[in-house]
Design a binder for these strands. Structure first.
Lengths: 165, 165
DNA sequence: TATTGTTATACTCTATAACTATA
DNA sequence: TATAGTTATAGAGTATAACAATA
């Protein structure tokens, strides 16, 4: 509702965020390619690794990764063909598909992780001391929680029922 | 060189950064589309707007946006066809192409900016008070400067002269 | 010989809409 | 009727390599 333009402090924080994340993303992408993974695929594997039981439903993963369902289906197909994950019907809800890491998937992650961590450390972590790192983490976590408070992507209606677009 | 895995603090900051930037990117992209711009195109226009004289060389813009030269050529072509920028040979170096904002380009930016600012404010700025915003900006600027200290993308050799790799 | 930019090409990825099946 | 996922489709975007021109 506020219509005022951003002041220099706001602009600075915003632009720095955009620049930092795109530089980091680019370097990370380059490193992951040596292991035959894109960053989206890496995120999928990592998210599964962290999930309880190493399993996750399609929709939940799509929301976490900010990806469309069909986009996730495509990527899941690639990872399944590569033998890194499995897709199986969920036990409790027959509409759902549950993704699970395979042993090969786990191995792949652990194979990439050192190089990945190296890039993240070199670009993002090295220039900050412990206190600054704590602060950055706290601030970004606060922002993320705020962003996540909005309804996720999958909650959007898929069939239009209103005339007002 | 450090081979240790990331500790929870490091992981937290890293993951929060990735998540925040992809959520923000997604919302921004959606808003910009209402004005017929992608985020890359918006960044190009904004960078030109901020540049001294509203002009910039291709290579400099490619480095700033972390984009390949050919990718930038493609996007510059789109913006030129849309009448938002002009491309002309640089006065001092005949190899270079200088991009410049047109009046229509400036108008387009100012037309999108309020909605854009609104998204940024709502997602990124609102959950932070002044002190926190200052801190976030300072931290990210520090990281960015560190990242930018490395040689830019365009400095990479384009013809391989060594047998190694 | 190095640098700037363009082009040709091929490919990856993503989203929209339609469709099926289950709750 | 709403939700979960897949598929078909089509388009947009990116990079690599080869090329032309200038420094």
């Amino acid at each position: 509702m506020t219509d005022a333009p951003l002041d220099p402090t706001e602009l600075g924080a915003y632009f720095a965020l955009v620049e930092v994340s795109s530089l980091l993303q680019h370097s990370v992408e380059q490193q992951l390619r040596t292991a035959g993974l894109t960053s989206v695929q890496f995120k999928m594997l990592m998210t599964l690794l962290e999930a309880p039981g190493g399993q996750l439903r399609m929709t939940d993963l799509a929301d976490t990764l900010v990806l469309s369902r069909s986009g996730l289906t495509y990527q899941a197909g690639l990872l399944e063909n590569a033998g890194l994950i499995t897709r199986s019907p969920s036990p409790d809800d027959d509409r759902s598909t549950t993704l699970a890491l395979t042993a090969a998937g786990r191995e792949r992650i652990f194979a990439v992780l050192p190089g990945h961590v190296d890039v993240v450390r070199r670009l993002l972590l090295d220039p900050l001391d412990r206190t600054q790192l704590d602060a950055l983490g706290a601030l970004l976590t606060r922002v993320r929680d705020h962003m996540r408070a909005a309804p996720p992507r999958s909650a959007a209606p898929r069939t239009r029922k209103r005339a007002d677009q």
